[in-house]
Design a protein around this nucleic acid. Structure first.
Lengths: 350, 350
DNA sequence: TTTAGCACTCGGCACAGCAGAGTGCTAACG
DNA sequence: CGTTAGCACTCTGCTGTGCCGAGTGCTAAA
């Protein structure tokens, strides 16, 4: 139905949205007539705007103020009106410079991604790092640390290195550990920690039953590790930038959003859903489209990234519904792609 | 000179400070007379307060408002007047519950510490995790990952595990790696990465000159790692709680502080100095005592923690100058001690 | 169908007036 | 001489009024 909108109406909706995105002020018919040469007078635009309001694309904060886009208006803008924006050379350069240089270590990479994304979008940014629970195991190894402790090392296909120290009762021969490492590697490579327990534990125990209790303990440790490390996957940056936005000048409006963003758990579960949309492309969730009450006055632009086609994390930008969708979607899309590239490349290089 | 203050004056200063800490409202002579039974009339208290103002311990926001403590007043309060406060059983329990349960992994432990500290103090909290640069190396090991990559693993005396993946040109015999690990361990255990370069590199190269180029590369990687991982040491929590404080109701007052706290680098360098004060005890830096302009309206209560007497990190609480010093200092002191205990125990257990 | 004109609405701001809290000062008191 | 009561004074914060400007909707003309 929206597609049947007359061209002039679309032009006006686009103008209103563009203007409001950049000024944060309700925009009146006169402004449109002056700044965006549509060749018609303000009165005509007024009439069209009244129609657009009836149809739910625009709304009026007060009767004598200009119009601002409604969530429905933004949705239409994003789907049909928004200018395709390519990143500038400067932006791409900045992204490359910051991200590639940090790619030696995945934590730094993720952190840098969040930082750069926040900076360029001038909004708050979220990056969910790769998790260890469902990731494919690329390497698993036991490293003897001392007489009574062993370091359990797991490297996933996303390049994430997870480790735990396991205390042991009685000294173990390094040779045995070596053997066990080989065995574990052989059995577990390619599967995930999540499925490890059920599927392979039995077989391994059968093969190595001399060390059954040790292995049991080790698996337990790893499983509890996956649980606790999930909270460490969330990186948020640029919270303060939200406060700079005019719509959040009154603290009380910003408070719930900021509190939400400060809680890693909530952010994680909220963005977990996006993984299911599969990699490639950026998605916008506009205002009331958000499930969570706290985000009803925000828009979230996010894109999953992954390794070799499998989604391992998500990056996102959070701003007022007036967020610059064009910029945000380009940025998020590009950075998700970069991340995927980087991770996939490091992984295949091995 | 301050010590010569008459007892009644002290009592009044204490009363004003206590009251202002809990209410955030300038406190008048009448309030003091009513709420804190000093046995004198409000007029007398008025006179004393005028004196305290002349001496610089109190100040008046406006002529017809009550008094609030000046930075000098807070300093005197902290040094001489503040009630010693023991943590309640509930508080201790909460700390233990959250921290001990996370002690299997140092990142989680640090994060949980920041979280609990922020929650209990009702302020923003900072925890600087152990660094790898100056830490003593407890274990160093090369783990063959695949034909063309080796994982370099460093475990420090604080239990921190740092790792980097090193790409190699031509395949290396696992046996050689094993030998090198043993050798590196032997040579480097007990020294730090920072001093590694200068002191031991030469010797090691002489012993293992067949692998000189490999080792050179490895050292370079590790050194650059220490640089980039420094930024990952900073954990800040409860930024939003600052916004809840009445003094930060106007955003513009809070903005610079929040921006400072969001910048890991600045926080790190600012708190780095505290390490030199040595472990044990909490220190308050009040308002204008802070070097950084941004913190001139804040107080920072911090305490270093360490492993076996050597300082490896710092924990801190940031709030308005009106912060509850008594609570903050107890909390920070106790948690620094707990952390030190935990880290020292895990280290000596190995 | 578009445009010009006009009356109307409403938010924001400046300004005045008022109430309340708290002070400093003076004078009386033990 | 220290302490207290009383009083005049000051200043903030709140409330209510009036005005300006921006922008609309409607009507009538082009």
């Amino acid at each position: 139905m929206a597609e049947t909108m007359a061209d002039r109406k679309k032009a006006i909706l686009r103008a209103v949205t563009d203007d409001y995105i950049s000024t944060a002020e309700p925009v009146g018919s006169r402004t449109i007539a002056r700044k965006y040469g549509l060749g018609v007078s303000s009165a005509t635009i007024r009439n069209e705007m009244a129609d657009l309001e009836d149809e739910g694309y625009l709304e009026q904060p007060h009767v004598s103020a200009g119009r601002i886009p409604s969530d429905k208006g933004y949705r239409f803008y994003v789907d049909a009106l928004m200018p395709e924006r390519a990143l500038t050379g400067l932006e791409e350069k900045k992204i490359r410079a910051e991200c590639v240089k940090r790619s030696d270590e995945i934590q730094s990479l993720i952190r840098a991604t969040a930082r750069v994304l926040g900076e360029l979008s001038n909004c708050a940014s979220i990056v969910i790092g790769p998790g260890v629970k469902t990731a494919e195991i690329r390497h698993i190894q036991l490293v003897p640390l001392s007489a009574d402790s062993v370091l359990v090392l797991v490297v996933t296909n996303a390049g994430l290195v997870e480790h735990r120290v396991l205390a042991i009762d009685h000294e173990m021969d390094p040779r045995d550990l070596e053997n066990m490492s080989r065995m574990l590697n052989h059995r577990l490579r390619g599967s995930s920690l999540a499925q490890m327990r059920g599927r392979v534990l039995g077989e391994i125990l059968a093969d190595l039953n001399a060390y059954a209790s040790f292995l049991e303990e080790m698996f337990d440790l790893l499983l509890s590790a996956t649980r606790s490390s999930d909270q460490n996957r969330v990186y948020v940056d640029g919270l303060m930038r939200l406060l700079g936005q005019p719509e959040f000048n009154e603290l009380e409006r910003a408070r719930p959003i900021l509190e939400f963003l400060e809680s890693d758990d909530l952010v994680l579960t909220e963005l977990a859903g996006t993984a299911s949309r599969g990699p490639g492309g950026a998605y916008a969730t506009i205002g009331s489209e958000n499930q969570r009450q706290e985000l009803r006055e925000c828009s979230v632009v996010c894109a999953p990234y992954g390794v070799g086609g499998q989604v391992v994390g998500t990056i996102a930008v959070v701003g007022p519904t007036r967020i610059d969708y064009s910029l945000a979607m380009s940025l998020v899309g590009y950075m998700a792609e970069s991340l995927s590239d980087l991770l996939t490349r490091t992984q295949s290089a091995k």
